[in-house]
Simulated scan of single mutants.
Amino acid sequence: MTKHTVVVAESQTLFRDMITNFVEDMDEFQVIGTLKNGQEVLDFIDEKEIRPFLVLLDIHMPVLDGLQCAKKLKELYPNIKVVLLSAYDDEESIETVLAVSADGYILKSSGLDEFKDTLRFIIDGKFVAPQKLVQYFSQRLESLLKIERESSLHYIKERFSHNKDLNNRELEIIQLMKKGWTNRMIADQLGISEGTVKNYLSIIYKKLNIKNRVELLQMLSDMTG
């Protein structure tokens, strides 16, 4: 069996040796480098002119931390798999990991079987992350989809279906206002003048029996609340 080459970077000797032993215990992998920081990883790859299949990086390391190293690795060698190791699973840490395009994220609190399974998933080209991360971004995605849905023209038409006085152009302007667009942005989008947008808004306010943009936005907020 051809083994996948691995570089391990961890500043603490005990953890570095433990991780190395865990990886070496797997038939699929062979550790070719054990290093103390991200800069050593970059130097090792450059000097040895070798491209490991996988680099395991502790996030918190001196000289060059795991996040900075991961970002540089992905810029220089996009085909190298990069997995970050961390003791933290807070939202800020999770978002930072995704921002550097890592292929996986393993918590140091993970069990040995979970650790090994994660590495095997990486071989199959899957992004692997803790359950908390998956749940967090699932909630974020659901929230973004809700916002997108409630800003669609179809949604606006449904909410104002009781008001037959509003025509399609007026509903379109209401939709763009709900997205937070300015009069100038709306004008550019619709290919009309800013003055024409203001005229449409005056008509919309009159038809809805309100006075201004603030009241319209409040009305839209009440509809989705």
Rank of each mutant, 00 (worst) to 15 (best):
residue 23 V to D: 01
residue 210 I to W: 08
residue 171 L to V: 05
residue 204 I to D: 05
residue 125 G to Y: 05
residue 132 K to I: 15
residue 38 G to Y: 03
residue 18 M to R: 01
residue 84 L to F: 02
residue 166 L to R: 05
residue 61 M to V: 01
residue 113 D to L: 03
residue 157 K to L: 01
residue 196 T to A: 15
residue 163 N to W: 00
residue 97 V to I: 13
residue 214 V to D: 12
residue 103 D to V: 09
residue 114 E to Q: 10
residue 150 E to D: 10
residue 168 N to L: 13
residue 109 S to A: 10
residue 136 Y to G: 01
residue 162 H to G: 03
residue 104 G to M: 07
residue 152 S to H: 07
residue 206 K to L: 11
residue 17 D to S: 05
residue 201 L to G: 04
residue 62 P to A: 01
residue 198 K to D: 14
residue 123 I to V: 10
residue 9 A to I: 11
residue 173 I to A: 09
residue 102 A to N: 08
residue 175 Q to R: 15
residue 43 D to Y: 06
residue 16 R to M: 05
residue 142 E to P: 04
residue 134 V to S: 14
residue 32 I to K: 11
residue 222 D to Q: 13
residue 144 L to R: 12
residue 188 D to V: 00
residue 219 M to T: 03
residue 124 D to G: 02
residue 202 S to L: 06
residue 150 E to N: 15
residue 76 L to G: 00
residue 209 N to Q: 13
residue 22 F to P: 02
residue 18 M to V: 13
residue 119 L to F: 03
residue 135 Q to R: 09
residue 86 S to Y: 07
residue 47 E to L: 08
residue 105 Y to Q: 05
residue 135 Q to A: 06
residue 164 K to H: 08
residue 172 E to T: 15
residue 218 Q to S: 12
residue 155 Y to F: 15
residue 78 P to S: 11
residue 2 T to C: 06
residue 220 L to P: 06
residue 159 R to G: 01
residue 3 K to A: 11
residue 121 F to N: 05
residue 28 E to Y: 04
residue 161 S to G: 02
residue 80 I to V: 14
residue 158 E to F: 02
residue 4 H to Y: 14
residue 203 I to V: 14
residue 208 L to C: 08
residue 79 N to E: 15
residue 185 M to P: 00
residue 157 K to N: 09
residue 130 P to E: 08
residue 12 Q to E: 14
residue 220 L to V: 01
residue 138 S to R: 13
residue 137 F to Y: 13
residue 169 R to Q: 15
residue 106 I to L: 12
residue 201 L to N: 11
residue 60 H to W: 11
residue 74 K to N: 04
residue 146 K to W: 10
residue 76 L to H: 05
residue 211 K to P: 02
residue 98 L to E: 06
residue 220 L to H: 07
residue 21 N to Q: 14
residue 195 G to D: 04
residue 139 Q to D: 13
residue 95 E to F: 12
residue 209 N to V: 13
residue 40 E to V: 00
residue 156 I to F: 02
residue 203 I to E: 03
residue 53 F to Y: 15
residue 31 V to R: 02
residue 154 H to L: 12
residue 200 Y to M: 03
residue 92 E to Q: 10
residue 126 K to V: 09
residue 207 K to M: 07
residue 122 I to Y: 00
residue 207 K to R: 13
residue 161 S to V: 01
residue 146 K to L: 14
residue 94 I to K: 10
residue 197 V to I: 12
residue 75 E to P: 00
residue 149 R to I: 00
residue 45 I to T: 09
residue 176 L to G: 01
residue 13 T to S: 10
residue 188 D to M: 04
residue 122 I to C: 00
residue 27 D to T: 06
residue 186 I to S: 12
residue 107 L to N: 02
residue 61 M to D: 00
residue 179 K to E: 15
residue 47 E to W: 01
residue 137 F to I: 13
residue 174 I to G: 04
residue 169 R to W: 09
residue 93 S to P: 00
residue 203 I to F: 03
residue 15 F to V: 10
residue 172 E to P: 01
residue 27 D to P: 01
residue 12 Q to T: 01
